[in-house]
């Protein structure tokens, strides 16, 4: 791999832009295709499919047998609510490879003592979320139980096309949430994207168990449903 390709690859990854490296494993000839340039590439169809799946692999192409290294941005987790569950969720998500950010305007909750080493923003969602550049490769969970905080955050998650959106609360609580969001003009399609009650049904009781259920559900969504590239969504 030429240093120039490696360097461009690292630049794209740092900017959270998808990129594919095409390698002829016989000759070693290699090129880097940025997501924005995929449509103009001779292998456009193959590369588009790879961006959607996020999976690297060998491919038979008009150019011969090539290896496609697919780099999609590392997943992120944005948790609304510096609550007990988030205290367990943050280190768990980091272990699973997620960049984690916790948002909670309630300064009694959002303290570095409760969240050592986790980026913590003690602001309301309308202030905290826009600079985060929440994107399709982001899992978004609303955990405060407070509609004043969770509802605007969820609106932001719909708008940004997060691959996973979950909200804490019983079926009854969620029913009320759906009514409120409908009243704000949220579409049925967007409402259907909320995982609620949040997490896999594993009988979780304690906050760490609920965190396991949530990370299990996020993992299932990431790995089992076809991923769409951001340009395919908009």
């Amino acid at each position: 791999m030429k240093l120039s390709i490696l360097s461009a690859l690292n630049t794209e990854r740092a900017a959270r832009r998808a990129v594919i490296v095409v390698t002829d494993v016989e000759s070693g000839v290699q090129r880097l295709v940025k997501a924005a340039d995929v449509a103009n590439d001779p292998l456009a169809d193959t590369l588009k499919a790879r961006l959607r799946s996020g999976k690297s692999g060998m491919a038979e192409t008009g150019e011969g047998r090539v290896f496609l290294t697919v780099h999609v941005p590392p997943p992120r987790l944005v948790a609304i609510g510096a609550v007990h569950i988030s205290q367990a969720l943050a280190p768990m998500a980091r272990l699973l490879g997620y960049d984690v950010t916790v948002v909670d305007p309630r300064t009694a909750f959002a303290t570095p003592e409760r969240f050592p080493d986790v980026p913590l923003i003690a602001e309301w969602p309308d202030v905290a979320l826009p600079p985060l550049n929440v994107d399709h490769y982001t899992a978004f969970v609303a955990l405060t139980h407070d509609p004043k905080i969770d509802d605007p955050a969820l609106l932001h998650a719909f708008e940004r096309g997060c691959f996973y959106i979950g909200a804490l609360g019983s079926k009854k609580t969620h029913g009320r949430r759906v009514d409120r969001l409908k009243g704000q003009g949220v579409s049925d399609a967007d409402l259907a994207r909320i995982h609620a009650p949040i997490g896999l049904s594993i009988g979780a009781i304690s906050p760490p168990e609920i965190a396991v259920a949530i990370m299990g559900e996020i993992t299932a969504t990431l790995r089992q449903e076809p991923r769409q590239s951001p340009d395919a969504r908009r």
Binding site: L3, L6, S7, L9, N10, R13, A14, H71, P74, G97
Partner: peptide, 11 residues
């Protein structure tokens, strides 16, 4: 180690 650390380390 995460992929990005590996590739940054390589560079």
């Amino acid at each position: 180690a995460r992929d990005e650390e590996i590739l940054k380390t390589a560079e």
